[in-house]
Design a binder for these strands. Structure first.
Lengths: 223, 223
DNA sequence: ACTTGCATTATTGTATACAAAAATGCGAAG
DNA sequence: CTTCGCATTTTTGTATACAATAATGCAAGT
């Protein structure tokens, strides 16, 4: 999007992701405008976008607050993501081309390299991961699915999860991508969907484990 | 939302739904501002919302156009809706209360009355239908699912579909709601989900039949 | 005649001032 | 001591002017 608006969006989003704005904090447009060095107009645009992605919630009287995600909300988001991304994988399996397979393989190789680095290159892993899922979404060929998933994938929770991964978990993630590629090579949509769902659900439990003690969680059995 | 912004939203949305703004038409903020009797600021807000619901698409250079939905887009939207609303039904089945059952029954009775009127009260049907699905979504207890579905349900396509229904189709719709209620009474989530998916998918084919001749469609087999 | 570059026009993006609405704090009444 | 009402302050909503950018058309050169 446009320069100022985009800058405000990224700035605010980063502040939330890094905890500079803690959950529950009230947000004032004017203050953010100062922080971002722009006027309130683009800040309001940015807040709209952040609200649609549940970074921010609005009170009945239109005041904005940094969203505080209960563990149930997190489970909810992961579950929806598992369902939607599973469907994307299934569609992608039946549409994948040789050229796309090459791109996916290259991407996953980069992920492997990031994981193998010493110490593990988490940022590189995240970037590779993001690209892998983006290619898959493109292959799924559903703009609507893409837009729904984009609203889910860039969540604070998802973003932070990888930082709790050990090298073994990162490696397992790479391995699951490999299995998805195998399913793609056979054009087996059901296989791809199953692996993808497992992939996302495991990610959820990695998150839940890292945040245990808050409450006991059980992700509903989905399908 | 706020007065002017909301008014702009509804006005523009109605213009699109009723075909006053035909698909592909370029949209100019200033012109809409005049039409709605407000300034560009709330119009821009409204356009953002309409864009997020795919009433409007934006060119690379940020010009706005009334979205033109290909039949594939329609199938895509219905399929996603079937999946998401099926999941909502499943969750609702395990959380439904006696009080909610009463509300749902009352609602579906109103639908029956609308259908039975002579001539059939399509607006009443739509309103009852909307409320039925809203209660169900509330019961599902997933804010995220709600927001994803809201972006899908109010589509031009969905809205227009009912106007192609004959009384028999409207009655069948009522009957499917009854079956969902039966599943709820037994707290059988799988049943509720299956009926809901069938319900939405039938609605799609009703639409497709009414628009046949454009192209042959086959909704992918989902799950 | 066809392209290329520039000036012009149309359209969107941003800043700012003002209006409306909501929250807050204080004081008086019970 | 609590509660209610009102004035004040804070915050968001809207209008409008101006800036930036993209589209358009025209003219000159090939």
């Amino acid at each position: 999007m446009s320069r100022a608006s985009d800058h405000a969006y990224k700035t605010i989003r980063t502040m939330i992701l890094q905890g500079e704005l803690s959950p529950g904090t009230q947000i004032r447009e004017e203050q953010l405008a100062e922080t971002c060095g722009v006027s309130r107009t683009p800040v309001r645009d940015a807040l709209r976008r952040l609200e649609s992605q549940a970074f921010i919630r609005r009170s009945e009287s239109q005041r904005s607050f940094v969203a505080d995600w209960s563990i149930d909300d997190v489970a909810d988001a992961f579950e929806l993501r598992a369902m939607l991304e599973g469907r994307a994988a299934r569609r992608a399996a039946s549409r994948v081309t040789d050229e796309a397979m090459q791109r996916l393989r290259t991407c996953n190789r980069r992920i492997f390299e990031a994981v193998s680095a010493n110490p593990a290159d988490v940022a590189g892993f995240l970037e590779g991961n993001r690209e892998f899922h983006a290619i898959l979404l493109e292959l799924a060929g559903s703009r609507r699915l893409s837009s729904l998933l984009n609203a889910l994938v860039e969540q604070p929770v998802v973003w932070q999860t990888a930082h709790h991964y050990g090298r073994d978990a990162l490696l397992r993630s790479h391995g699951e991508h490999e299995e998805i590629l195998a399913a793609f090579a056979r054009h087996d949509g059901a296989w791809a969907q199953a692996v993808m769902e497992a992939h996302i659900r495991r990610a959820f439990h990695a998150y839940a484990d890292a945040h245990q003690g808050l409450t006991t969680i059980d992700m509903a059995v989905g399908g």
